[in-house]
Amino acid sequence: MKRDHSVIIHIFLFLVVAAVLIWSVIRPEGYLIWLAEVFPALILVITVIATYKKFRLTTVSYIIIAILSILMFIGGHYTYSKVPLFNWIKDHFDLNRNHYDRFAHFLKGLSVIVIREILLRLTSLNKGPWLVGITLSISLAIGALYEIIEWLSFKVTKGKKLTEDFLGAQGDIWDAQWDMLLLLIGSMLTLLIFSKLHNRHLSKLKSKRG
């Protein structure tokens, strides 16, 4: 019987994500802000584990999910505006803010591959302009929903420090617009660069399933 090496990769990814999660919960900036920041990643990881046998994704999708989860765990530990490496970059290049949140929103564009896979496997959509348009729209819709949640939390708590840390706006009134723009750019570049690789992974998965 031929061994499925992809399972070994998936287990490795899970162990890495679990290790970063454990690290992130050890003396974070604050436990409430940690929970607010990592909650989406926790739901995502739990969903992936629960559906692994019934609806296994491609390895490239699992790699992306691992990357995005780790990004959120790091942001939850330090808060997005206080990640040390980006504080160093801020000081070294005399920038006006910590850009970890910008970097994270750009990389969240990688999620379009996971969205693309779900659409191709669970709907009648085929590869082409409609798939690209709908995939980008869903990515932006998810990003917009998160920005609305941040705005509502700010309104409900009347701008308390916990919510300010959660927003990570750092005084920029256009923070939400920048986040959405970078998500769009990241999503478009991801589709442009990784769609062919994703197609190969989808073909391999299909051949394994018979």
Rank of each mutant, 00 (worst) to 15 (best):
H99C: 10
S61K: 08
E37H: 15
V17D: 06
I173H: 12
I11K: 02
E147H: 02
L35K: 09
L119Y: 11
F14M: 14
E117R: 07
I173S: 11
I148Y: 00
G75S: 07
L120V: 07
L197D: 03
V17R: 03
N87Q: 14
Q170N: 08
I115Q: 03
Y52K: 12
K108R: 13
I138V: 14
N96G: 14
A144G: 02
S24F: 11
T58D: 10
H5A: 09
H201W: 14
V20K: 07
T123C: 10
I64Y: 02
S207I: 12
I134W: 02
L95I: 15
L182Y: 02
E147G: 01
G186N: 05
G186C: 09
N96R: 15
L85N: 04
V16Y: 05
F93L: 15
M188L: 15
I118P: 03
D94I: 13
K160C: 04
L167F: 08
E37L: 10
H77R: 12
D172K: 08
W178H: 10
P84N: 06
V114P: 01
L167S: 08
S111W: 01
D175N: 13
V83Y: 12
E37I: 06
I173M: 12
L13W: 09
A104C: 13
N199V: 08
G210W: 11
K90W: 09
V60R: 01
P40H: 01
S137I: 07
V83W: 12
F86E: 03
R97A: 05
H99A: 05
L152S: 04
I33A: 03
F55V: 04
Y80G: 03
T123P: 10
V38F: 12
S81P: 03
I193F: 05
L197P: 09
I113P: 01
F14N: 07
G168Q: 06
A50G: 05
